[in-house]
């Protein structure tokens, strides 16, 4: 097990969205545009990084019987911090991510990594895991966001990228569009994997 391997596994091999299918709530809900996807991805990565470090540090003093409540407290604390700091210094992003920031608490990726990885590995490996998973999550969210924003609004990061004659298919930025896009991207991932 080495640092680089832990760092890159989240991108393709153990991609949290397309392979592990974790954290579906933010994936489906906030990917209406690339900027929302990036914001959500970075916020979740930050929480994941912090919680992985803390949990890896306290793994020896946490009795296994109450580990889940302890993890939740740690994660919830970091989520609240992100929520408050964002509201204070990044109000525009905070407004558009709104309800989904507190929901990072129940993002399965974070608790999942805490339970499956950070509670069994040392701090350095946990950092690598958090960064890799966070990066994979952010990139996957951006990919979904890219497809949805281009198809559904004709823009990318707010810039018009399609010809003006293109009438955006609104469904892509509505809830059903999230499921359809995710399904197609997942199928594409599986197809590429099988070919290898």
């Amino acid at each position: 097990m080495n640092f680089a391997k832990e760092l890159t596994k989240g991108l393709i091999k153990d991609n949290p969205i397309f392979v592990l299918v974790l954290g579906m709530c933010p994936t489906l809900a906030v990917t209406t545009s690339v900027i929302n996807a990036l914001g959500m991805g970075f916020a979740a990565t930050f929480v994941l990084l912090c919680s992985n470090i803390i949990i890896s540090l306290i793994k020896n003093i946490t009795p296994s019987k109450i580990r889940i409540p302890v993890y939740i407290v740690v994660i919830a604390a970091f989520v609240s911090i992100v929520d408050m700091v964002m509201a204070a210094y990044l109000p525009a992003l905070h407004k558009s991510l709104g309800l989904f920031i507190p929901l990072i608490v129940v993002n399965c990726i974070i608790l999942g990594r805490a339970e499956a990885f950070a509670s069994k590995n040392n701090v350095v490996m946990s950092i690598a895991d958090a960064l890799g998973m966070g990066l994979g999550f952010t990139l996957s969210l951006s990919l979904v966001g890219t497809v949805r924003e281009i198809v559904g609004a004709g823009t990318w990061l707010g810039m018009r990228v399609t010809p003006l004659t293109y009438d955006p298919a609104l469904i892509a930025i509505l809830a059903p569009g999230a499921f359809i896009t995710l399904g197609f991207l997942m199928a594409l991932m599986n197809m590429l994997k099988e070919k290898k």
Binding site: I61, T62, P63, K65, I66, P69, V70, V73, V74
Partner: peptide
């Protein structure tokens, strides 16, 4: 003891 640990974390 468990309760106390949880309390400290909180």
């Amino acid at each position: 003891k468990l309760g106390l640990i949880l309390f400290i974390f909180c």
